[in-house]
Design a protein around this nucleic acid. Structure first.
Lengths: 81, 81
DNA sequence: TATATATATGCGATTTAGCGGATAATATCG
DNA sequence: CGATATTATCCGCTAAATCGCATATATATA
């Protein structure tokens, strides 16, 4: 269980969950991230694999951060990474 | 200081650090991730902004995971996300 | 210094992401 | 049901990522 992103499906689910948690429409996230609503839809449905830049913009629009963490670790201090 | 990825430079640094920590050559990571050595070099130097798929492959080759975390959090349990 | 190893760079070709600009499909609500 | 809002899909186009392959630098090591 987690927000580990190992494929475009994971990303889509994470984006949709975060967006709904904030009660935003695709259009809202799109505007904030400077992309089309259609792209948000495509990504949420795992229809395409985005560019890193795009992911970063969208994730930021949702007040989230992308981070790199070691595998198989149960707990860690993010300030160390 | 951290492994938050907010641009391609962040990514490049994280990749290079992780690779050197494991004492691997660019060629090793490239093979494991099924990409060119040249691409690893380009990414480590922030020369291009990769596709998410590519990032995932490379990160996996380094036994790392990409994850999405909330911003402005000093410490957290990754199993919750 | 010479040799080997590792990393960076260049170039043309192919593939894919993202766009604008629609519209179709689905959900929401009076 | 009917109107409205939200999400999904389509098309042609442009820009960018990645490739293969070769080579130039740089770094290590004998």
């Amino acid at each position: 269980m987690g927000k580990f992103i190992r494929n475009s499906k994971d990303l889509g689910e994470a984006i949709r969950r975060a967006r709904k948690a904030k009660d935003l429409r695709q259009v809202d996230v799109a505007q904030k991230a400077s992309v089309r609503q259609a792209l948000i839809s495509e990504l949420e449905n795992g229809a395409t694999t985005a560019k890193l830049d795009t992911v970063i913009k969208i994730v930021a629009a949702l007040d989230l951060d992308l981070s790199i963490v070691p595998r198989h670790i149960a707990s860690f201090d993010p300030t160390k990474y």
